[in-house]
């Protein structure tokens, strides 16, 4: 694929890239920079993308790869730990006050998850990649994705859509 085609496709993929970057870094400034770097690298590697595959999945693999390289580099420099997302910085993100508070609370809980669980949650719960697709992007066995989600689900269970679950139980 030509660089220009990839550049044209990136704006649509950018929200996914940004959220995945946030799930990796847990830090707002790093997320913006990692997102930018991912876009630049994707254009640079445009000829490696095969149109039969998932463009977003390909971008997220690039994102993760850049992040791992930076982590290795950072480890060698023994940098300080990153700041984590301050949920108090969250603005009104939904139409109603109650919804805002609910969304804010959920985002806060997601951001407080361990990095590995957070990335799995972002890919499967939010971006709706299948377990196997998420396993490819994260370069881990599918069972690892499932166990990370299982652990995350325990923390996030209080936010479960009880209505959905109950109605489906009743259907059976």
């Amino acid at each position: 694929m030509k660089p220009r085609s990839v550049r044209d496709m990136l704006p649509r993929a950018l929200p996914s890239i940004w959220r995945f970057a946030l799930s990796l870094t847990g830090d707002i400034e790093m997320t913006n920079d990692l997102s930018q770097s991912t876009c630049l690298r994707a254009v640079e590697k445009a000829d490696q993308f095969r149109s039969a595959g998932s463009f977003e999945g390909w971008c997220l693999q690039i994102c993760r790869s850049i992040w791992l390289n930076e982590l290795r580099s950072r480890a060698s420099r023994q940098d300080k730990a990153f700041a984590t997302v301050d949920v108090d910085q969250l603005p009104d993100i939904a139409p109603g006050i109650e919804q805002n508070l609910f969304a804010r609370e959920i985002i806060s809980k997601v951001m407080a998850l361990p990095d590995a669980q957070r990335s799995a949650v972002e890919l499967v719960f939010v971006q709706q990649f299948t377990y196997s697709e998420a396993a490819v992007i994260l370069d881990v066995p599918i069972g690892t994705v499932m166990s990370r989600l299982h652990a995350a689900r325990k923390v996030l269970r209080k936010y479960a859509d009880v209505t959905l679950g109950e109605s489906r139980k009743e259907q059976k």
């Binding site: 929200p15 940004w18 959220r19 946030l22 603005p91 993100i93 939904a94 609910f102 969304a103 804010r104 959920i106 985002i107 997601v110 949650v121 972002e122 499967v124 719960f125 939010v126 709706q128 995350a152 689900r153 996030l156 269970r157 936010y159 479960a160 859509d161 009880v162 959905l164 679950g165 489906r168």
Partner: peptide, 17 residues
Amino acid sequence: LDPVAGPVRDAMMSLPG
């Protein structure tokens, strides 16, 4: 069926602006 995924997705999809 995952009852946790929907609410988490709704909240997270509001990001970024």
